[in-house]
Computed example of a mutant assay.
Amino acid sequence: MVAAAAASPARASWRPAVPTTAACAAGRCFHVGVKRFSPANSAGLQTTSTRLHRPATAHVKSGEAAEGRTPSTESGNEESLRRDLETAIQEEDYARAAQLRDELRVLQEDGRSAVLAANARFYTAFKNGDLVAMHQAWAKGDHVYVVHPSAGRISGYDMVMRSWEMVCDADYEFPLQIDLQDVEVYVRGDVGYVTCLELVRTKGSSSWGKQVATNVFEKVDGKWVMCIHHASHFDQ
């Protein structure tokens, strides 16, 4: 494992070079890019960057669905609301349409908040090098995958967790410092994703690593869990 090395302000070396095959995953071959996490409290990940979009103010795309407040499934709930809304508009029942629009908006806001909370749990585990929390943050199955900076795709829950074990076992002093900027969230039914710019720095380093990240989540048994994490170096 290579220790953190000096780099340009836009990019620093800290995340191990992640294996792209099962054979490589059995060894230690990581190359890392520096990130920064700020301390997190019980409410979720806290950041020090003034540019950070916090969950309450994150940019959100239109047409999003969310985690609902009713016992029925959110995706079915959303589609039902959309159909009823279209019907109400066609029938020119605008009072009913306004009510349905508000219900749909509440559904969307709940889902965005839940996905952002899942995103915060992932970064908190990452920041602290907490493997137990990292295992809990991910969906189980062959469909999950991760792409670490400057590395290929690693597929399957077991291999993905092996890659995070390499990260957490690296010669870095945890917690890392991580800021998230330009956060956007999109949710539709039982699938959602967050895009953001990761700024990461290890203790004692004056350089920040920058990665553009896409985090995809799915809802399993009522809980949002990560199924894809893709981070690429971003140089300015």
Rank of each mutant, 00 (worst) to 15 (best):
A137C: 07
V200N: 05
S8G: 12
V187F: 14
K61N: 10
E198P: 01
A26G: 07
R51V: 07
V220I: 15
S207F: 01
R188M: 05
Y186V: 08
L116W: 03
T57M: 14
E64W: 12
T202I: 06
A56N: 09
C168K: 10
L100H: 04
R188P: 00
D102I: 04
C227F: 06
Q236N: 14
V144G: 03
P175R: 00
G27S: 14
G44Y: 02
A95F: 11
G33Y: 03
R153F: 09
Q90R: 14
S113M: 09
E165Q: 12
V115H: 03
S113N: 10
M159R: 09
R112N: 12
D221Y: 05
K219Y: 04
A66D: 07
T73Q: 13
G192L: 12
S62H: 13
Y186T: 13
G63Q: 06
H148Y: 09
K35G: 08
T73I: 11
Y193L: 14
G111N: 05
S13R: 09
G141V: 02
M226Q: 13
A10I: 06
Q211I: 02
K61Y: 11
R11F: 09
T48R: 15
R121D: 11
W14Q: 02
L81V: 04
G68R: 05
K140E: 11
T214Q: 07
V147H: 01
